[in-house]
Simulated assay, not measured.
Amino acid sequence: MPTVKEPTARVAPAPGGIPMRLHPRLAPLLFAGLFMACASINVSSNYDPSAVQEIDAYKSYAWAAQPDGGDKRVYNSIMGNQVMQAADAVLQARGYKKVDASENPDFLVGWHGSVQDKLEADTVNNYYGYPYSPAWDPFWGGPVVAAAPETYVREYEEGTILLDVVDGKSKQLVWRGKAQSEVNGNASAEKQQKKVTQAVDKILERFPPKAGKK
């Protein structure tokens, strides 16, 4: 009976056609690294359909009072300034005029945030799902043994930023945008600022709302 070699997880062949090998114990580190490097920003929004006409007529805005919260990772002057500066750049580039809250702005902008612990389970096949032929492997000439899928559980932090638009006259919430993404606690201040700016930009791509779209 042929000797069975310990199954290994496979990644795509390197340039030049030579397959690379990765031991199953290293697979969780690979996936964590790829996920962190490619972490996306998920965005959604909602609005009051009856307020679309009023929103389209908005010309000026002001910031609502800085929110208070117990999580100092979110509710601090640095984070607040980053969110407001990013939003100001987008809104003013679109022609909205920033005024003081005492000057009767057409709308008020407020923000909220949170960081929550999350768990994610990934089940992967050691051969990554693509057909494998021994002819491509110069290091292994015996029978191919397909290993059972393995599940890896990863704990991470997810950050959320909310931007609210409140009508200046009625003081009613008329639009809300939300961005969520994985938090990298080891990122530099510059990278954190860039991520906040990207999140705010993506949120405001949906403002002002278009009738029938969210």
Rank of each mutant, 00 (worst) to 15 (best):
P138W: 15
L204S: 02
G142W: 11
L204C: 01
Q92W: 07
A57F: 07
R94A: 13
G113Y: 07
C38M: 13
V165M: 15
K214Q: 11
A39G: 02
Q116R: 09
S181W: 11
K195Y: 15
S102N: 06
T3A: 08
I78K: 10
G113D: 01
E182A: 13
D100S: 10
Q82C: 01
D68R: 01
W111I: 06
P19S: 10
P105H: 12
L119D: 08
S50Q: 12
W140H: 06
S188D: 05
K213M: 11
S133L: 10
N186H: 11
I55P: 02
K213I: 09
Y156A: 00
I18H: 07
V4T: 12
Y128A: 08
A51W: 11
T3Y: 09
Q172R: 14
G168I: 13
P134S: 10
Y75Q: 06
A51K: 09
K214T: 12
P105L: 06
R21D: 10
R10H: 11
A14Q: 04
S188Y: 11
P19F: 13
G177L: 04
F207W: 14
S170P: 01
R206W: 04
V174D: 00
V153P: 02
T3P: 00
S77L: 11
V144W: 12
W111N: 04
P15F: 15
V153Q: 09
D48S: 10
K178A: 01
R21A: 13
A199D: 14
D71A: 03
